[in-house]
């Protein structure tokens, strides 16, 4: 059975006019089906306002479907009795690292989750150490988060989720507010968790370069899933992505232009190396 499966998921919210009266309903998510298996690295791409963050919040019972169902590890996310199990299984990392820090010291922040779960002090210490080591932040355990760079803060946030021993981590645009160095750090940490610890990753982003590493990409727009497939498949459909306010990585774009001009280059080139090898052979 899949770790996460959403069936015909619909989410509507109330729209209000200036006087606060109900004006109608807006559909943020419209009949979305999603299947994510254990150990997968899934990227959900979509422009601003496409509903991808709303979708993410359904995966750990922060929001509940208006219609349809979401199952996490076999549990219905609307099952009030399982809500804490679900939140334990699916950890969330948000966009703004500043707004998710609860402790005044790195290790206190990481301990917050396990403390809420009622874990024994000795065990918490172990978990904190292990999680901070995984994201290479153990040396900073006594530092105040305000002294850290954006990339470091975001890695602490990831450690905070890891300490809850989740099966899956959902990252909602974790790099949107970071500089390229911070981005690189976070993406490296995420890939490490997926490769080494085999933790399921759901990365929500509109940075195309980050989605290249995924096993599977879903593209959302206006509440629908409009495209899905491997990065190769998705990024070979350059024009379709553009229609959805997205783009492709620069290398893919260059390869696309070259292929259009008649060079023998297969669609969906994702990295510099691929393009180079391809050109050197021809």
């Amino acid at each position: 059975m899949n770790l996460i499966s959403a069936r015909k998921l619909i989410f509507e919210y109330v729209r209000r006019d200036k006087n606060g009266d109900v004006d109608g309903f807006s559909r943020a998510i419209d009949e979305v089906d999603l299947e994510i298996s254990r150990g997968d690295f899934v990227a959900i791409l979509g422009p601003n306002g496409s509903g991808k963050s709303t979708l993410a919040k359904h995966l750990n019972s922060l929001l509940f479907p208006t219609e349809g169902t979401v199952f996490v590890d076999g549990w219905d996310t609307t099952d009030a009795e399982k809500i804490w199990d679900i939140r334990k299984s699916v950890g969330m990392v948000f966009q703004n690292p500043e707004n998710q820090m609860i402790g005044t010291i790195v290790e206190e922040d990481v301990a917050f989750g396990p403390e809420n779960m009622g874990i024994e002090p000795e065990n918490i210490k172990e978990r904190v150490k292990e999680s901070l080591t995984m994201v290479e932040m153990y040396d900073h355990r006594k530092t105040s988060p305000s002294k850290l760079s954006g990339g470091q803060k975001q890695r602490v946030a990831i450690a905070g989720v890891l300490a809850m021993h989740p099966k899956c981590i959902v990252l909602d645009e974790p790099t949107a507010m970071l500089d390229p160095v911070g981005r690189e750090e976070v993406i490296r940490a995420i890939r490490g968790l997926n490769d080494v610890e085999n933790i399921t990753i759901i990365l929500i982003t509109h940075n195309m370069e980050e989605a290249v590493f995924a096993d599977k990409i879903y593209v959302m727009n206006e509440g629908h899933i409009v495209m899905s497939g491997t990065p190769k498949e998705v990024f070979s459909r350059v024009d379709e992505l553009r229609e959805n306010r997205l783009n492709v990585p620069e290398v893919t774009l260059l390869a696309h232009e070259l292929a259009k001009a008649g060079l023998n280059i297969p669609p969906g080139i994702l990295t510099r190396k691929e393009l180079c090898n391809c050109l050197c052979r021809s």
Binding site: G46, P47, N48, E173, A176, M177, H206, M208, R242, R245, L246, N247
Partner: peptide, 8 residues
Amino acid sequence: CAGLDPAG
């Protein structure tokens, strides 16, 4: 452009 999607 920080935080905007590619079209933005």
